[in-house]
Design a protein around this nucleic acid. Structure first.
Lengths: 220, 220
DNA sequence: ATTATAAGCGAACATCCGTTCAATGTCAAG
DNA sequence: CTTGACATTGAACGGATGTTCGCTTATAAT
């Protein structure tokens, strides 16, 4: 999946992580010697050697003639998983009678018009996320309504009880429900506890299209 | 409202903004001399003099013996309005039969156990925000349910049609509704379009406790 | 065995950088 | 007018910092 990361030696990934951690802790990048202290390399020139490699492959960027003039590039932040802000591509719309769009697995954020930016803290696992805008009130039994943004994780299967976006083949309907496998049938439980569950006898009618991670509603 | 900011001279606020901008642009803090270049001060000692003042009032923090060892404190980020991340204090719980907590106007983030961090981009105006956790399903007609987080802005009055947290005195009930003043009475409209509005004849029964800015639902 | 490549060390150096010091200017209060 | 607090300057010092250079070691390919 990530060709860059494979090209890195253990030392180099260690250095990249150290730079990331240092910035996160102190609010400014480390010096060559401070990196050395953390990764256990005595020679400053040797660290420079590795930093040159990291810069060559485009994971970091440096300002020559500037002390601590080092920062992770977008690629660098991605390979090592940076601290604060996660950009989630907004790839489409949830609509009644329409399957829920699932982006390709190598989505690169290029060519995506819009992203929403969240902090790592309020998300759990930040891998394979994408976001959809809700159109219409067809998801209202999931306590989701027009204009909301749903953050999803691209998965093929879900655990019992997880909230998923499912496509019901026969009804030609997309819906957000908690999915329970009960013997041979499937129970789809609305988020609204006042509403009754749906039972599907043929599990093949239920196609998992993703897993709901978060719902965000901006109120004008 | 902000006593700190008034105590700052023009020069000092300018320096604070310069530090903020520099970090934002380059990814690392400026040196004393780089600050001088931008604000037009030739003497390094003079800049140190102002940095000492800024540190005294707690707007910046410095690592002695570290080059570029300067960062904005939370207070500093707030006075000068920092770039990306906004920390919103999580001050309590919304519960049926309980007024909605409203923090004091000078909430300083000190003594607050928990905060949620969001990016400036998905919020609009980031002033006077606080957050509440929803407990129970009493807000379900606002499409909000147990465990959701509601981001609020501390206001005393709302525009017509805005979603607000209101306390109904006679019912002893807190609820999230769109508020419409219709002549002498007040219409409270649920977010769920399938549900009927509530009409209150005596406007004094309706006490605005805040304005809903965002609803966030983390799905397990 | 030889060679190429990556990994590593330590010293030396010029520059960068935070800090200190002595001195001057400004301006309102006493 | 004097005083004292604040603002500003310039020079100098010592330590921090990125870079260069020469050298050594380990590993794998030729």
């Amino acid at each position: 999946m990530n060709a860059l990361l494979e090209r890195l030696t253990e030392r180099q990934r260690r250095i990249l992580e150290t730079v990331r951690d240092f910035i996160h802790e102190r609010g400014y990048p480390p010096t060559v010697r401070e990196i050395g202290q953390r990764v256990g390399i005595a020679s400053t020139s040797h660290i420079k050697y590795h930093l040159d490699r990291l810069e060559e492959v485009g994971l970091i960027q440096r300002d020559p003639r500037s002390s601590r003039g080092i920062r992770l590039t977008v690629a660098g932040e991605r390979t090592v998983g940076f601290g604060e802000i996660v950009a989630i591509p907004l790839v489409g719309v949830i609509q009644a009678g329409q399957p829920i769009p699932v982006p390709a697995s190598d989505f690169s954020l290029l060519g995506i018009e819009e992203t929403i930016e969240l902090t790592r803290g309020i998300l759990g696992d930040t891998r394979d996320l994408y976001a959809l805008r809700v159109q219409g009130n067809s998801m209202i039994d999931a306590l989701v309504h027009d204009g909301d943004i749903v953050v999803m994780r691209r998965v093929e299967e879900v655990e019992n009880g997880e909230m998923a976006a499912v496509w019901l083949r026969d009804r030609e309907e997309a819906t957000l429900k908690r999915v329970y496998r009960e013997g041979s049938r499937v129970r789809l439980q609305p988020a609204n506890p006042n509403m009754a569950p749906i039972y599907i006898d043929d599990p093949r009618q239920v196609q998992i299209q993703g897993k709901v991670v978060m719902v965000i509603r901006r109120v004008g």
